[in-house]
């Protein structure tokens, strides 16, 4: 019976993949791999292409990584290497608490608080200072790719922080001591002994964060603007795979439209599965089999 339960997990994993493949077969049959490159999503004429959503997903996630990775790594280093225990324990807890906040609540805050704030501060400043570069040109509405990326960054910071903190903590003390005994400062010890040792695990943590960003749905749906275009500016209103599915799946006609949405889902699944497998293997290599990764991700 326990075997059945355990087996069910593997079956579910396979089942989800197969089911999505079957349900989207019509789209693949009609458009083939050209589906991935198609830029139109025309319900009236029945022409479906995934590019705007793939682009929106990838762009928002990468932008989120650019914001979140330096912040998260410094935080993980601070928590694992620098902070005294009385500070690192509550801070770690608070960062992990951030991961527990429901996506829809983050989205609500994103729409009504964060994006107006960004519009009036950071975005205004960016347009003013860097507006001559096409991707930073205005106008900036708050709602759009940039706000979505900031929201995503906030949501993946806990993942990257907690996994990389664990990986850094797992670096043997002897490595630190050896570097310190050579007359290295804390910073040099971290950079030259600790981080190289933990490198693959940290890469794993970042990939886990990326996986989470790619699949994050509600908060992004609420702030990205839901416009089916291939975004070319960071302030463009856009659409990700997940937000496209979330906003249109229920209205979709069963048939090629639904199939195409599920095909989008399959693309997302393939990307996130691959990333997760890679990330887990990398993290396992450094931090071992255990660890509270399930709760962190």
């Amino acid at each position: 019976m326990t075997l059945v339960a355990a087996g069910l997990i593997v079956v579910l994993l396979a089942g989800i993949t197969i089911r999505l493949a079957i349900e989207s077969a019509g789209t693949w049959a009609r458009f083939g791999l050209g589906f991935l490159g198609g830029t139109t999503w025309d319900v009236v004429n029945g022409v479906y292409g995934a590019l705007p959503f793939v682009a929106g997903t990838v762009e928002s996630s990468l932008l989120a990584l650019i914001i979140a990775v330096p912040l998260s790594l410094l935080t993980a280093i601070f928590l694992a290497e620098l902070a005294p225990r009385w500070l690192s324990v509550p801070l770690t807890f608070l960062v992990e608490l951030l991961a527990a906040i429901p996506s829809v609540v983050v989205g609500l805050w994103g729409v009504f608080v964060l994006s107006p704030f960004l519009r009036d501060t950071v975005e205004k400043w960016l347009v003013g200072a860097l507006g001559f570069i096409p991707i930073f040109s205005g106008p900036a509405f708050g709602i759009g790719l940039f706000s979505a990326s900031v929201v995503l960054a906030i949501m993946i910071v806990p993942t990257i922080v907690s996994v990389s903190r664990e990986v850094i903590v797992a670096v043997p003390g002897a490595q630190r001591e050896a570097m310190l005994a050579l007359g290295a400062t804390r910073w040099e010890t971290t950079r030259r002994a600790v981080l190289p040792y933990a490198r693959s695990g940290i890469v794993g943590a970042v990939i886990l964060g990326l996986g989470r960003a790619l699949g994050e749905t509600m908060a992004v749906t609420m702030v990205i603007g839901n416009k089916d275009i291939v975004p070319t500016r960071v302030f463009d209103q856009a659409q990700t795979i997940a937000s496209k599915i979330a906003t249109t799946f229920n209205e979709a006609q069963v048939g090629i439209q639904t199939q195409s949405l599920i095909a989008l889902g399959l693309v997302l699944l393939a990307i996130t599965l691959a990333l997760n497998v890679i990330a887990r293997l990398l993290v396992r290599q450094v931090a071992g089999d255990g660890g509270g990764l399930a709760s962190g991700g």
Binding site: I9, L12, L214, G215, G265, L269, T272, L273, V277, A294
Partner: peptide, 9 residues
């Protein structure tokens, strides 16, 4: 790996 699958899927 399953924990990492987007919940919308």
């Amino acid at each position: 790996v399953m924990v990492g699958i987007p919940s919308i899927l």
